[in-house]
Amino acid sequence: MSEKTVLVVGGAGYIGSHTCLQLASQGYEPVVYDNLSNGHGEFVKWGPLEQGDIRDRQRLDEVFAKYRPAAVLHFAALIEVGESVKNPAGFYDNNVVGSLTLLSAALSAGITSFVFSSTCATYGLPERVPMDETHGQAPINPYGRSKWIIEQVLKDYGTYKDMRSVILRYFNAAGADFEGRIGEWHTPETHAIPLAIEAALGRRAGFKVFGTDYETRDGTCVRDYIHVLDLADAHVRAVDYLLGGGESVALNLGTGTGTTVKELIGTIADVSGRPFPTEYVGRREGDSTTLVANNDKARQVLGWVPRYDLTDIIRSAWGWHTRTNQH
């Protein structure tokens, strides 16, 4: 087993690829395992790519035997909340059955260090803001529930199977590599920042704001946008922590600062110098009013402090979207 080889499952995707960049910069060899259903082969630049599905136990066993990684980082999930409501079976098949298959293969290969991409969607509707890790978990959609189920599985595997895990609950991932090598590229795109930037670039007709009557400072939803490189940094720290013998823990990854949709639009218009048409429509089902992280625990456990603010996020995302013509 190589202490510096890690298996990055879903490493051709948005957050996975930025984490591979960060892992390589810290001396790790990230081996990417991805079925490329949502990932991009050209995002795999810092280690080998092994194509395969997380539900394919035989293929997983082959890759574990070939590379003998010291730890697994698991990013491979379907993430679109609206799609999870339309197709819950697909989400449970990939996010739950797939994760269980991956965990079984990891256990068989003797892996005891596992980093799991989770989400603030496991909390459901906020009882208090900012939300810390003691907040109740009552997901309101199949996506959030599929992640919550695996969190519970990991706790059991910690108790009964010696599998130590760091569960990382993301708030709103955003931004891109400042050198423009990789960035946010989803098909179809559903995330607010890329959609607004595409509107500013004239690549789509305009930007829709869902709901203007929320109890927030300007009536629009509040979200905690966290730079993808800050997320990547937390993942590398989580690997270091587990390989150093750290105990299982669940941590929020957010900045602790909330931004309304109107403020987000204003920042994008300022950074780009291009105001864009905005349409205000009714609320969207399943949207929480305010989601903001309390990130004290991640600071304490991993020594992790977010480095980038909203302007940095928008500047890096703008750089990526103006450089690339794939979208």
Rank of each mutant, 00 (worst) to 15 (best):
V6Q: 09
V6E: 07
V6F: 11
V6D: 02
L7Y: 00
L7T: 02
L7P: 10
L7W: 06
V8W: 07
V8L: 14
V9R: 07
V9F: 09
V9H: 06
V9E: 04
G10H: 03
G11S: 09
G11F: 09
A12H: 05
A12E: 09
G13L: 12
G13W: 05
G13K: 09
G13E: 10
G13N: 12
Y14Q: 09
Y14L: 12
Y14W: 13
Y14C: 10
I15K: 11
I15T: 15
I15C: 15
G16T: 11
G16C: 12
G16L: 14
S17M: 08
S17T: 10
S17H: 13
H18W: 13
H18E: 13
H18M: 14
H18F: 12
H18C: 14
T19I: 13
T19M: 13
T19C: 14
C20G: 09
C20V: 05
C20A: 12
L21F: 05
L21Q: 08
L21R: 11
L21G: 02
L21I: 03
Q22G: 00
Q22M: 14
Q22W: 04
Q22V: 09
L23A: 14
L23I: 11
A24G: 02
A24N: 03
A24L: 02
S25P: 00
S25W: 00
S25L: 02
S25N: 05
Q26T: 01
G27Y: 05
G27D: 12
G27E: 08
Y28E: 11
Y28I: 08
Y28L: 11
E29G: 03
P30S: 06
P30Y: 06
V32E: 05
V32N: 07
Y33W: 09
Y33F: 15
Y33G: 03
Y33K: 04
D34S: 12
D34C: 12
N35I: 00
L36I: 08
L36Q: 06
L36W: 05
L36D: 03
S37H: 00
S37K: 01
S37I: 00
S37E: 03
N38K: 06
N38I: 00
G39I: 11
G39R: 08
G39M: 09
G39N: 05
H40A: 12
H40G: 08
H40I: 10
H40W: 15
G41Y: 01
G41W: 03
G41L: 08
G41Q: 15
E42G: 06
E42N: 11
E42D: 15
F43I: 08
F43D: 14
F43K: 12
F43V: 04
V44S: 06
K45L: 14
K45I: 03
K45P: 04
K45E: 03
K45N: 08
K45A: 06
K45M: 08
G47P: 09
G47W: 01
P48T: 06
L49R: 02
L49Q: 07
L49W: 07
L49A: 08
L49N: 01
E50W: 03
E50P: 02
Q51N: 01
Q51E: 12
Q51K: 11
Q51L: 07
Q51H: 01
Q51S: 08
G52V: 04
G52H: 03
D53G: 00
D53M: 05
D53I: 02
I54K: 04
R55K: 13
R55I: 05
R55T: 15
R55P: 00
D56E: 07
D56N: 14
R57Q: 15
Q58D: 14
R59L: 00
D61Q: 14
E62R: 10
